[in-house]
């Protein structure tokens, strides 16, 4: 049942208008409730709704925290926890595989490096892969999706069938093959994950455009004589961008997972650069005896991916204009 229709929440100030035509606003009607509320833009409205979503806000705070840590860790982490990569061979045996303590909150790994420090530096790889790869996918996906939806016909058929073919391949295998062809490096991890991520974004954007195109306001713009470019920029894009924001946010989490999987399989970042995937791979040998070696990078992956998913979910609800419409 549509509760929304029963909850009109709009300006309550309308003048009589009983006879049409110009109506002089002799004595301004009392506008108590409506005037008290400042006009809200849709974005600030969405922010208001997002703020009330506790899970999404937890996700957002966690993401902001990780981003700050990743950006600033050079300034404080080495002094506190030592180098994430360098091995002090003289002290290695004493420092190897220490359990969590005040000095090493997450313990140390087999080579005597601080696990917390490596988790902190690992966030740099994970975040940059997540964001850059998603950026590449999004740009390609937006262009492809827009071409398919707006021009339709043969464009639509070619692009969408191409997307289907991409989606029919086993994704991780495809990424591995691509890295094998391009050569193993962190840049190529960005490129491989980014290149292969576009089909789903293209699909989401295409269907968003198609549903926006159905709206009368697009016809209204055409009936006013608006050009194609104006219709796309002023009417279609602003109304379909929300779904892309949501999807891209969730996609970042997916890209982080893929990078971890690649590193775990030895196809991603090369040691000694710390990456959560590599750390799990390193730590799994000691799962039974020194579980923290695997636990902490694993927790980092789970919480970060979960944070992006929660934020994405929250954004979806917050940006849905229909919640206020209809």
């Amino acid at each position: 049942m549509d509760k929304n229709t029963d909850m009109p929440i709009y300006a309550v100030d309308e003048k009589s208008g009983a006879q049409g035509g110009p109506v002089n606003q002799g004595s301004p009607e009392p506008e108590t409730t409506a005037a008290a509320k400042p006009t809200r833009t849709l974005w600030s409205d969405a922010w208001g709704r997002l703020r009330k979503n506790k899970l999404a806000m937890i996700g957002a705070i966690w993401i902001i925290f990780i981003v700050i840590v990743a950006l600033t860790c050079d300034l404080w982490a080495p002094q506190w926890l030592g180098s994430p990569t360098q091995i002090d061979s003289s002290q290695m045996s004493e420092l190897s595989k220490l359990p969590p303590s005040a000095e090493h909150p997450f313990g140390t790994d087999a080579l005597g490096r601080d696990v917390l420090c490596r988790v902190i530096y690992g966030s740099r790889i994970s975040l940059s892969v997540g964001i850059l790869a998603t950026a590449i996918s999004t740009v390609i996906g937006l262009v492809m999706g827009a071409l398919a939806a707006y021009y339709g016909g043969i464009w639509d058929t070619i692009i969408m069938r191409l997307a289907d073919i991409f989606l029919a391949f086993p994704y991780t295998l495809f990424v591995i093959v691509l890295i094998a062809v391009l050569g193993q490096s962190i840049t190529n991890v960005f490129i491989a994950i980014g290149l292969l991520g576009w089909p789903s974004i293209a699909r989401v954007f295409r269907s968003a455009i198609l549903s926006v195109k159905e709206n009368d306001y697009v016809d209204a713009a055409r009936a006013m004589g608006a050009s194609d470019a104006r219709i796309v920029i002023r009417h279609i894009f602003p109304n379909s961008v929300a779904s892309i924001v949501v999807y891209a946010t969730m996609n970042i989490g997916g890209a982080i997972l893929t990078e971890s999987a690649l590193s775990y399989l030895g196809m991603g970042v090369t040691p000694p650069t710390p990456s959560w995937g590599i750390m799990i791979e390193d730590g799994q040998t000691y799962l039974a005896t020194q579980p923290w070696l695997m636990l902490f990078p694993g927790l980092a992956i789970i919480t970060t991916v979960l944070a992006f998913t929660l934020l994405g979910d929250g954004l979806r609800d917050a940006l849905d204009v229909k919640m206020k419409d209809a």
Partner: peptide, 24 residues
């Protein structure tokens, strides 16, 4: 003949007018 509408709009059900809800 011109029609005779009821002026204004139905109230928001969150904020029903004090007194008779039709009074505005």
């Amino acid at each position: 003949k011109p029609l005779t509408p009821i002026k204004g709009n139905p109230p928001s059900l969150v904020n029903v007018p004090k007194g008779c809800s039709f009074s505005p």
